[in-house]
């Protein structure tokens, strides 16, 4: 994830549609993702996914196959090369194969859907991921989630299990993806709720069938609105639109989740408020400091969460204050704020 999210350089956030989709599909552990394009498209994504995985203590190799398009495939069409790559994935015992297109494959008009629709013996699911069509990293994530969701049986509608929640669209490449997940699990436990499925984070293909079984969904962030709507349409499952950001956002999250589930949030909110008050007292040593946080974007959810904390700690945000690290995305839950304040303390005392 970007460490210096300068608002003047927003193109950093647009990214590659293919990479976004692969961040989802490679998290279906027994799947293989076929990248239909030149080998470089697979190579640099393999490197990125592998190194990001190591950063998050996952020493696994993303299962990618490239169709290895070269000049002859561009001139004569790449569908035969794609067939070879899919055959290779089938022989490698994939439970499901995701076929992701690239800019060049879609430019020359290869009919990826038609190749995928043949009888391969295992599901072969095409995902459109040509970035030149105006897509972004997020578009790739969304396209992949929609395609993977399409393989979940509708028959699971109507067998929703009480107390179970789906986590939708975790940012698999973000630093602290596991910590953020654990924080949401902790908050849900205050309401007596458990996670049904992490859609999609380190799951098996057969687990996708459980997608329609949850009482409600929790989206990682609001960019996944289209996924929430699709799951609501397919399974009738309502959604909380984002992970919690900031202290008040966390309390609001508990209230919203309880409201959707039909539970009383009072006890959970009271407990969490106590945790937050204890946290503020615990960081009294850095209260009242002047800090510099010059790349906070006005009105952003990250800004709101950070400003809330600086207010509670009587801090002043000034141009030449103590430089403290501002996270690129809002800290998740009370624990996310706690980790941020630990970093601030280290920076102040360094």
């Amino acid at each position: 994830m970007p460490s210096n999210p300068s608002p003047s350089n927003s193109c950093r956030f647009e990214g590659c549609t293919l990479t976004g989709a692969l961040s989802v599909t490679t998290s279906v552990c027994d799947s293989i993702s076929v990248v239909h394009g030149p080998s470089g498209c697979a190579h640099h994504n393999f490197s990125l996914l592998h190194t990001t995985g190591i950063d998050n203590d996952r020493i696994t190799f993303p299962r990618l196959v490239s169709s290895g398009m070269q000049d002859a495939e561009i001139v004569f069409g790449g569908e035969e090369a794609l067939e070879r790559a899919i055959r290779s994935a089938v022989s490698d015992n994939a439970s499901v194969i995701y076929v992701l297109s690239t800019c060049i494959a879609e430019t020359i008009g290869d009919d990826v859907k038609a190749v995928c629709s043949r009888d391969w013996g295992v599901p072969v699911i095409p995902i459109p991921t040509a970035g030149f069509l105006g897509g972004s990293f997020q578009k790739g994530v969304n396209n992949a989630l929609l395609a993977v969701a399409g393989s979940a049986p509708i028959s699971s509608q109507g067998v929703r299990l009480p107390g179970l929640v789906n986590i939708i669209g975790e940012k698999n490449l973000e630093f602290e993806v596991e910590e953020n997940y654990r924080e949401v699990v902790r908050l849900l436990s205050l309401l007596g709720l458990r996670v049904n499925l992490r859609f999609v984070h380190r799951i098996r293909a057969d687990e996708i069938a459980r997608l329609g079984s949850a009482s409600f969904n929790i989206l990682r962030d609001e960019d996944l609105g289209v996924i929430g709507e699709e799951l609501s349409r397919r399974f009738g499952t309502p959604a909380v639109t984002s992970f919690p950001a900031g202290f008040s956002g966390t309390l609001k999250f508990l209230e919203t989740a309880a409201g959707i589930y039909g539970a009383d949030p009072a006890e959970a909110i009271a407990k969490e408020r106590q945790v937050q008050e204890f946290l503020i007292r615990d960081f009294a040593d850095i209260a009242g400091l002047a800090i510099s946080a010059d790349h906070l974007v006005d009105g952003s959810s990250c800004n709101l969460a950070v400003r809330e904390i600086t207010g509670l700690l009587d801090m002043e945000v000034v141009r030449d204050g103590a430089r403290v690290p501002i996270p690129p995305v809002p800290p998740v839950g009370t624990t996310g704020i706690k980790r941020m304040l630990h970093r601030w303390r280290r920076a102040v005392h360094a």
């Binding site: 000049d71 495939e73 561009i74 001139v75 004569f76 069409g77 790449g78 569908e79 430019t107 020359i108 008009g109 290869d110």
Partner: peptide, 13 residues
């Protein structure tokens, strides 16, 4: 030369 009609990219050829 180049591809059959309807596939590939004749211009690249």
């Amino acid at each position: 030369g180049g591809p059959e009609p309807g596939v590939g990219c004749a211009g690249r050829g």
